[in-house]
C-alpha cells in the first residue's frame, strides 16, 4: 500500500541486500532514508534509538562490518552488501552477555534510552582493549550522551565486565552473540 503511493509519485528506489544480526535481508529503499529509520521502521528493530538525528548523542549506534557507526549519519543504501548488527543481535534467547550483565549489576542504566548505543560501541572497544583504564573507557564513551546516570556507573560496569570476562575467559560472551 505504502509502496504503491511511492511508486505513483515516481520516487526512485534502490534495492539493497544486507545481513542483519545474521539474517540475510533484501529491501527496496528510498535513497534518502537514513539508516536509523530503515532499521527502526522497515526492519522493526526498535532497540536502536533516535536521540538527536544530528550525530551528537550516540543513541543510534549500531555496528556495520563490526565497526560502531552512528546510524543517523548514514543512509540505508550505504550498507548495501554489509553485515549489520544491532542491539537485538547481541544477546540470544534472553541471555545477557558479560557486559550487559555488568551494566545490570552496577546500575549502569536508568531510563535505558542511551544503553543500546553504548553497548554497541563498548562491544567493539572491548574487543580491541583487553584491559582498558578508566580514562580509556571514558574516552570511548565520549560520543554517547546519557542524562540519567552521570556515566560513573557505566564506567564501573565496563571495568567489572573486563574483570569478569578475564576470570571466566568468556571473551565470546563479551563480544556478543557467539553461536
Amino acid at each position: 500500500m505504502q509502496l504503491l503511493i511511492f511508486m505513483r509519485e515516481g520516487t526512485s528506489f534502490m534495492k539493497i541486500s544486507l545481513t542483519v544480526n545474521g539474517t540475510q535481508n533484501t529491501a527496496n529503499v528510498e535513497p534518502r532514508i537514513l539508516l536509523v529509520d530503515f532499521i527502526r521502521d522497515t526492519l522493526n528493530l526498535t532497540g536502536t534509538k533516535l536521540g538527536c538525528d544530528t550525530g551528537q548523542c550516540g543513541t543510534c549506534v549500531i555496528q556495520v562490518n563490526g565497526k560502531p557507526v552512528k546510524s543517523c549519519s548514514m543512509l540505508a543504501v550505504q550498507v548495501d552488501g554489509c553485515d549489520v548488527k544491532t542491539i537485538e543481535g547481541v544477546s540470544q534467547h534472553g541471555q545477557l552477555n558479560t557486559l550487559q550483565q555488568s551494566l545490570w549489576e552496577k546500575h549502569g542504566l536508568q531510563c535505558g534510552f542511551c544503553t543500546p548505543g553504548m553497548i554497541m560501541t563498548l562491544l567493539d572497544f572491548l574487543q580491541h582493549n583487553e584491559d582498558p583504564s578508566e580514562d580509556e573507557i571514558r574516552s570511548c564513551l565520549e560520543g554517547h550522551l546519557c542524562r540519567c546516570t552521570g556515566y560513573h556507573s557505566v564506567v564501573r560496569a565496563v571495568r567489572d565486565a573486563v574483570v569478569k570476562a578475564r576470570q571466566t575467559q568468556s571473551a565470546d560472551l563479551l563480544v556478543g552473540s557467539a553461536d
Partner: peptide, 21 residues
C-alpha cells in the same frame, strides 16, 4: 537490588512510545 526492568532495556526490547507501530 538490581533493577528488574533492566534486562529488557539492555536487549533493546523495552517499548518506548516512538517504538510503537
Amino acid at each position: 537490588l538490581k533493577s528488574r526492568e533492566d534486562p529488557q532495556m539492555l536487549q533493546g526490547e523495552s517499548p518506548y512510545t516512538a517504538d510503537i507501530k
